[in-house]
Nucleic acid binder design. Structure first.
Lengths: 143, 143
DNA sequence: CTAGGCGCTAGACCGAGGTCTAGGTCAACG
DNA sequence: CGTTGACCTAGACCTCGGTCTAGCGCCTAG
């Protein structure tokens, strides 16, 4: 809301990205609106830019590649008229996240299982399922 | 359960990894038990190996780096006695996954929001929150 | 005036995780 | 017998996403 313009360093601090990364993102076209410059050529970020970057951070965190963010940024840059395409892109990412969640939950289940079987194993002497080397017949017989 | 030994190609097909990747994993020490060879020097995977690889795939899918899997494999390779360390490692990964889930859910929320605001936007004429370029004062004024 | 701090560009570098190539062995098939 | 196909090793190569460096410009404070 407030109309504070920020320097690259400030944006870095409040997005958690490095200034290097911010410049990289710009080079790669991740910005939806061209970053303004002051008279000395230094970048000047609007609150809107910062919000956008914050979104980018979340997109990245959910596995969206820079190239895809760049496409989205381009659509936004081109202005109104391509909302359907933006929606497509977002929906696909939505799906992507959902899949990730499913996979992660699956993995978590595995890990939970292993953890609790090791807990059991450590509690009483030895037992349960923990990975124990199988007998291992030491075969060197051609199949 | 069944004691079928598999070739690298077969393992590749049923784990979804490439044969290259399987060999890479072996070089990097991801295997908990040394992979046997037949008389001609070809890799022979036991059912146990395959199960292990399948676990590795899940670990990878949940963001565990190869190096960490390798450490775990080493612990298992060293045999019984270090269960506590294995448990630590697994618990940390558990935590890691949980964090990822939280972050992902957060991102999903953002994306959901954007998606539905674009849906609204497309349904009725124009409205809602979709990223619209702000007025953008075109300032080139030194701060 | 000089030093310190922040900014700039261009481009090198890095680590992770794969992927692919060259050049070779082996076995089965027709 | 020659061909085909799966496998082997060693090592080059690639992409992605950052990170860092060199060499410079500006501005402000002491």
């Amino acid at each position: 809301m407030a109309d504070i313009d920020l320097s690259i360093g400030q944006v870095a601090r409040r997005t958690g990205l490095s200034v290097h990364t911010l410049r990289l993102y710009e080079r790669k076209g991740l910005f939806a609106s061209e970053v303004r410059r002051d008279s000395a050529g230094r970048r000047v970020y609007s609150a809107w830019d910062v919000e956008w970057v914050a979104n980018c951070v979340k997109f990245r965190a959910s596995g969206m590649p820079l190239a895809t963010i760049s496409r989205l940024a381009q659509l936004v840059r081109e202005g109104t008229g391509n909302e359907a395409q933006r929606l497509d892109l977002l929906r696909e990412h939505q799906r992507h996240i959902t899949e990730q969640l499913a996979r992660l939950n699956d993995c978590l289940e595995l890990v939970n299982g292993k953890v609790s079987s090791y807990e059991r194993h450590l509690a009483d002497g030895a037992s349960g399922d923990p990975w124990q080397q199988q007998p291992q017949p030491a075969a060197t017989t051609g199949q």
